[in-house]
Each structure stands twice: as C-alpha cells, then as structure tokens.
Design a protein around this nucleic acid. Structure first.
Lengths: 135, 135
DNA sequence: TGTAAAGTCTATACATGGTATAGGGTCAAT
DNA sequence: ATTGACCCTATACCATGTATAGACTTTACA
C-alpha cells in the first residue's frame, strides 16, 4: 500500500508517518520506480504499536528502545519493564504537580468571584502576593 | 542592575530573560554605552509575576494578556477571571487524561511482574493486543 | 598600563513531536 | 494531451526554553 492508504488505516497523518521514518521509529520502506513508498501490513502493525505507545505518552526514544528489545525474542524483557515503571512514576509525578497547581488556581480564583475593575481584582492581587512573598 | 544580577534575583536563567524580552513578555530595558541591558526593581517584580504565572502553567500568550489587562487599573478584570477559569478547566482535563493513562500503564505492568524473555513478556503482549484490537 | 578573567552581546542551532507549506514529480483517467 | 489526485524532498514553523560560537565590554589585579 502507499502512504496515503497507510495513513488512512493507521489514523496518523502522512507527515507524521514520514516524521517517524526520519526519527528511525519506522523502518524505511521499499520504493516504487517513481520513488513512492510502499508499505506491507507489517508496517501497519509496527505503526499501530507506535501509536499505542504514543497514546501512553512514551517518548520517541523510549519507543525506539522498546522496539529494539522487541526485535530480539530471546533477550530479557527487563528493560521493557523498567521503561513502563519509569513511565508510571513520571505520570504519578506529573499528576501530583497538577494537583498542587489546581489547588493554587482554585485559591486564586476564589479571590475575585465577581467582575470588578483591575485595580480591585483579587486574582491579580493574589498573583502579586505570591511575587511579594518570594522577593 | 545587569542581567546576571537579575537572573540571580529572579531565579531565571539569563537566556530565559532574553527569551521573554524577545517574546514581548518583558519590556526592552535601557542599555549602557557598552550595550548592556540595565534593569530596575520594577523589572524584577515584572519577571517574578511572569515566573509565578509560568509556575501555574500559563502560556506566554496568556501571560501577555494578563499583563496587558493589569496595565489598565480602570478596566474590567473579566478577562483575568476567564483566563484563570479556562486554566483550571485545562488542568482538570489533563489530570483526567493522566488518570486514564495511569490505569492503562498499571494494567500493562501487571502483565509481566518477573523478568522473562522478550517472547514471553506480558507487557509487550499487552501493547500488541491493544494494536490487534484496533486494527 | 597591560592583560586576563568574568560578564555580556547577537545569532544560531538544538530539543520535542509534530504540522504546514512550496515547488516539484508520478500516475491514472478522460 | 491534460487534468486531478497523489506523492516526493526540503524547509520553516509551533511552544518554551537551553546551549553553543564568536565577538565585545568591563573589572580586577599585577
């Protein structure tokens, strides 16, 4: 199949597929005489695996590693487990950050329930007071 | 003060300060005869305000808007409240995404508690099965 | 006064994960 | 023969910085 069909089937854009190829995430496919890329069903499976990993927010480098490990059926999957675990930790960390953020934002919002003039706005005063506390 | 001192006092890097200036987040300061930037304490306050907003994960564009509103004490602070509210919504949305992500990751991790060979690794099988389900 | 070190300047490239465009080539149908 | 759909490469752009190179200024010290 050509790249347009692959894009349709995978749900990724043509540019994204070419981008993954440049990043060595997807092997370079054969070309036709007219220099068009030709893909097999394997490439589609490969691409869907990548898409799944991206949906899990893995970086391209992590996916490259995962694919490299996967390519050796006899090797140890230790690095795969480590990658997933690190990922879980990262997500947990980011969630904790966002929770703290949300708390600050809600506090700030409560400072100005009604629309007022800027000089009376509690939200801006809150933002300033954070500044004052730090300087 | 010169940019190095401002960087020290604000806790931001010199490059970041110059970057904010290019992005029109920070007004262009006066220069010495030798073309060095010279900052007042106002610039420090301004920068700390920006830093606080960035810590709340606001985009540069949002901060530009906030600063523009703040510059007119008699205008309405309605847009400030809207910005904060949209921000709270964005953070909530992102947290929900991460929660779903975390659930998937934990499920995947549980598929391979012990290190095995790649061909037996439950984690890789899980990732593949997601792919299979979609294709 | 000479010089070396520390600080600053601009311009540019890199990172991440794509997206968008320009300017061309290929292929199938009419 | 030409149109339209598709594809190609190369390049620039998005956000939010970080990191360099190469040049200039200022400061410190002998």
């Amino acid at each position: 199949m050509k790249i347009g069909v692959l894009a349709q089937k995978s749900g990724l854009s043509i540019q994204t597929i070419r981008f993954y190829e440049r990043k060595r995430l997807l092997p370079s496919p054969e070309r036709t005489q007219g220099n068009y890329r030709v893909y097999t069903d394997d490439a589609l499976q490969h691409l869907l695996f990548i898409k799944q990993c991206r949906a899990l927010d893995m970086t391209i480098d992590e996916i490259v590693e995962l694919l490299a490990t996967r390519a050796n059926p006899e090797s140890s999957c230790e690095s795969v487990n480590a990658t997933i675990q690190k990922h879980i930790d990262d997500v947990a960390h980011r969630m904790a950050e966002l929770k703290a953020l949300q708390k600050s934002l809600v506090t700030i919002r409560s400072a100005c329930a009604h629309n007022k003039k800027v000089k009376e706005c509690g939200v801006l005063q809150e933002l300033d007071s954070f500044v004052a506390a730090k300087s």
